[in-house]
Design a protein around this nucleic acid. Structure first.
Lengths: 117, 117
DNA sequence: AAGGAATATTCCTGTCAAGGCATATAACGG
DNA sequence: CCGTTATATGCCTTGACAGGAATATTCCTT
């Protein structure tokens, strides 16, 4: 996993673009309009996504159509595979998992000076 | 998917921490030592990871043990599910996929004005 | 060739995040 | 209580990045 994939997806607008492209390819203008972005920022975001390998721009006449590229998502899925035991074997070590939950009893506020006359 | 997950994983050091915690929980000092980080930055990164919900800190005597929390990874996996058709149905629309690859034959440069004396 | 539409690039600015360093806090051993 | 270990926090500086506005580029149409 190269961190550029995460960097690209970390920006909310870029994430929206990716979600939009999941349905079908869109032109730059379409993306800008449907997401309420300005055209220059849309182009910039698409450049980041392209450099990260998430998106491929296909010139088509006057426009440029943004496609999602499968590879990085597959890589992400492969990477996640090594984390699946975390929640799939959860039942085998439930006690371990329970320790990741906050305790039930309301612990006294640690910011409270505690001086209760 | 909240973008904090991606933001947390976008930093190479934090990513390394997560990869380290995948094996087993580690204390702050262990993480700092094994990754060659300074202790304060390690604490800061762990705070970011904790705020993003990726990590749970469990006090244990003098130390604080960092555990990986399964939920965000599962969320990531669920989110990715909607993208799996991208590469799994690739064969059904191979032509569409091929268009995301650069052309094999050195096509004439479209920016070339074409004037060949 | 000219005008227009679609997109990219540049410059600017504000914001935010990461590392370095010093220091504060917390829990342990004696 | 004191010193030590483990960790957190605060302050500072620097670099990256996102958005805004203007402008450049590319391609189409006529």
């Amino acid at each position: 996993m190269n961190h550029h994939t995460f960097t690209a997806l970390a920006d909310p607008h870029r994430f929206q673009i990716v979600e939009l492209l999941r349905e079908r390819p869109h032109s730059v203008g379409e993306i800008a309009e449907r997401l309420g972005l300005r055209q220059p920022q849309t182009s910039k975001h698409l450049r980041v996504l392209t450099d990260a390998g998430l998106v491929h721009m296909e010139p088509q006449a006057n426009r440029r159509i943004a496609h999602l590229r499968p590879t990085p998502f597959r890589d992400l899925d492969d990477w996640l595979t090594r984390y699946r035991p975390l929640w799939e074997e959860r039942l085998d070590r439930l006690d371990d998992y329970l320790r990741t939950l906050p305790p039930e009893d309301p612990a006294p506020d640690p910011t409270d000076p505690g001086g209760s006359p």
